[in-house]
Design a binder for these strands. Structure first.
Length: 630
RNA sequence: CGCAGGGUAGAGCAGUCUGGUAGCUCGUCGGGCUCAUAACCCGGAGGACGUGGGUUCAAAUCCCACCCCUGCAACCA
């Protein structure tokens, strides 16, 4: 029994939460609940990151103040956590006084440690982007890659943190503590990043106004990442002598998506070293989810509709799928058909049906939880596997192998189904002798189910609760910890059970459709006039060449019948230049010209790309060049 | 030589750190049971663990080289 301090990242409020955020938070919640079950004093924090140039920009676009914008966004997160039943203790907003106070205290300590210095920061700067670019990114024309506007050479005084000073200490710490960075693939990556040399990092921005001022120089705001990392201690009301801080720090685990492991495994520990605070025990960067093999993206409509899934299958099914299907450290592919499969096979058939068949027999022959009067074959095996499962789950949870932990629990569920089969319980009611044995087998099955309910409660708290209720147990059984199932026989007898009802009704596979891209394509009708505003023409490709250092681009010369155009097309992965020469294509002729990779493009040719490849639209027979297409 | 991840049964994945008869789910084929949600249970078929080389008594696992996929970034009007 100890304490367990667990964190998710504070999520950036530049957009509403999506399934990736949910994934991290569900995992954190399962781990937090598991440690509660073990009897640990758990402290679980999450929150939102609200400062920075990006937020300033987005709020300006929406015509509201940054604070108003953040006030609108924060509830979209808390509402989702409520829907997902996330049992956090503190939801920290970086605009809160609690956070600002802690940040000021921490930054002052950092300053006093002597690792902060002022220096000139210089580079090419794009004002609309509010960021610096390297010469390589700007290309030959020295324009911003996003806005295509000229950049300016800016020199800015900034404060820096002497990160490079901690290279060796970080390496030593990571090498000496195998579990400090997990999974191993991330650990190796971080090691190689540090080995290749660390640069000192800028920790302030004079040009960004939406932020927290540096306590020792209020003319600068703290760079948002530096300030955000502090949330892990500011949420504890940071003060080295404060009670919460002394109780819970260092964190037992910082959970996050793999893209931000570097900040947590390098910069954050170095800052803590600088002020002589203990380091978090573990930084875990989990994998990303894709959907149907493709990146999850709002613009392509390839999103996972959590609300629809939860409405149809229930929260338990959603949380179960997320934790069972993917190996936590690796990337995973979210597939709707797999979701339905998991639901039916694991939840409905294995667990739901086991509960239902067991309680059905109890209800028919006893009405109350029977007494285990008559031991027999297979009983001890079931008991032993129950005990082993509890131990195995514990070891797997400590490795954050959620999928394997659930698999271990389900192995036990299947074992109990087999137990019922092997003992042929339903045939025993015929004699008085048999009835004693029957009661014992059913008692054991129910005790097994109670064990399962406790073990799955971190993942599916509501399901554990429903199992308990159907078994006739009162709420005092909710609070029971892991130790009560490590010992067999904690289930009381003679308690009336409830009417058995399927907790996971089977879903018909055929009626369940993959809700993929189709949904995003409806609506958005345009008028005929809008369509007519497109000037599309028959054109012939008369020359084509590839563009150096551009994998996807071809430079084409096309003939519109009397007029020649140069266009750049992103089709190089599917067409060799020579394939196109002589082909008639459809050219959008009145598109505004653009410069791509330094080459002028005066139009665009029509093509379609599906998952497998790309094809340029052409004509069924040869047409007069320059003819309008409609 | 841009960065990262991956290639293990028909499908989806674990196992690789710590070398020792290749594992899970689904599907498929055959059988059993009839308490239960057309559920459950038993058995079978199906694998050069991407390729080649090396280390070792022993390699999916360690080392080297290569091939192929997938993201991200640079360009996708």
């Amino acid at each position: 029994m100890g304490k367990f301090y667990i964190t998710t990242p504070i999520y950036y409020v530049n957009a509403e939460p999506h399934v990736g955020h949910a994934y991290t938070s569900i995992a954190a919640d399962a781990l937090a609940r598991y440690h509660s079950l073990k009897g640990d004093d758990v402290f679980f924090i999450t929150g939102v990151d609200e400062h920075g140039a990006n937020i300033e920009k987005i709020s300006a676009e929406k015509g509201v103040s940054p604070q108003q914008y953040c006030d609108q966004m924060a509830p979209t997160f808390t509402n989702l956590w409520k829907k997902l039943n996330i049992s956090y203790d503190i939801f920290l907003r970086t605009t809160s006084e609690l956070h600002k106070r802690g940040v000021a205290k921490f930054l002052n300590s950092l300053h006093e440690s002597g690792d902060i210095y002022k220096d000139k920061y210089e580079g090419y700067y794009c004002r609309p982007c509010e960021s610096f670019y390297t010469e390589k990114e700007l290309g030959e024309q020295k324009v911003c890659p996003v806005h295509r506007l000229p950049v300016e050479w800016v020199e800015e005084e900034n404060y820096f943190f002497a990160l490079s000073k901690y290279e060796n200490r970080l390496l030593e710490h990571i090498r000496a503590n195998r579990r400090f960075i997990q999974p191993d693939s991330r650990r190796n990556e971080i090691l190689s990043v540090i080995e290749s040399g660390l640069k000192n990092v800028s920790i302030s921005r004079a040009s960004v106004s939406w932020g927290i001022p540096l306590p020792f120089d209020p003319t600068h705001n703290i760079y948002v990442w530096i300030e955000a990392l502090c949330n892990y201690i500011t949420a504890l009301d940071f003060d080295e002598t404060g009670e919460k801080f002394r109780t819970y720090w260092p964190a037992d685990i910082h959970l996050m998506g793999k893209e931000i492991t570097r900040f947590h495994a390098i910069i954050w520990p170095a800052m803590l070293m600088s002020v002589n605070l203990p380091l978090p025990k573990q930084v875990f960067g989990h994998g990303w989810l894709t959907k149907d093999g493709d990146r999850i993206s709002k613009t392509t409509g390839n999103i996972i509709d959590m609300n629809a899934l939860i409405d149809e299958f229930g929260l338990a099914a959603f949380r179960y799928y997320m934790m069972r299907e993917f190996s936590f450290g690796n990337d995973g592919d979210f597939r709707h058909d797999r979701f339905v499969l998991r639901y039916n096979a694991d939840l409905a058939n294995d667990l739901g049906n086991l509960l239902n068949r067991t309680l059905g027999l109890v209800s028919k022959h006893f009405g109350v939880i029977p007494n285990p009067t008559t031991p027999g074959e297979f009983d001890n095996e079931v008991k032993q596997i129950a005990r082993e499962t509890v131990n195995e789950v514990d070891s797997l949870m400590s490795r954050r192998a959620f999928d394997a932990a659930l698999e271990a629990i389900w192995e036990f569920v299947r074992r109990v189904n087999r137990y019922i089969q092997q003992t042929q319980v339903w045939t025993l009611a015929k004699s008085e002798d048999g009835k004693g044995r029957m009661g014992t087998i059913l008692y054991n099955s129910m005790e097994a189910l109670r064990t399962v309910a406790v073990l799955i409660s971190p993942f599916m708290p509501d399901t554990a609760d429903r199992i308990r209720q159907q078994m006739g147990l009162d709420e005092s059984f909710n609070a029971q910890g892991l130790d009560t199932v490590a010992q067999w026989g904690g289930l009381p007898s003679e308690i009336p059970i409830m009417k058995p009802e399927p907790i996971f009704p089977r879903k018909d596979t055929k009626s369940v459709q993959s809700n993929s891209v189709d949904g995003a394509e409806e609506a958005n009708l345009i008028s005929f006039n809008q369509f007519q505003s497109l000037d599309m023409r028959v054109a012939e490709v008369i020359a084509a060449e590839s563009i150096p250092n551009a994998d996807r681009l071809l430079k084409l010369q096309v003939d519109l019948g009397g007029e020649q155009r140069q266009i750049v097309a992103g089709i190089a992965e599917n067409y060799m230049p020579d394939d196109l020469i002589g082909k008639q294509v459809i050219l959008v002729a009145n598109l505004e010209p653009a410069t791509i990779r330094g080459i002028k493009s005066q139009g665009m040719l029509l093509a379609a790309a599906d998952g497998k490849g790309l094809a340029v639209a052409t004509f069924e027979k040869t047409m007069l060049l320059g003819t309008r297409v409609r």
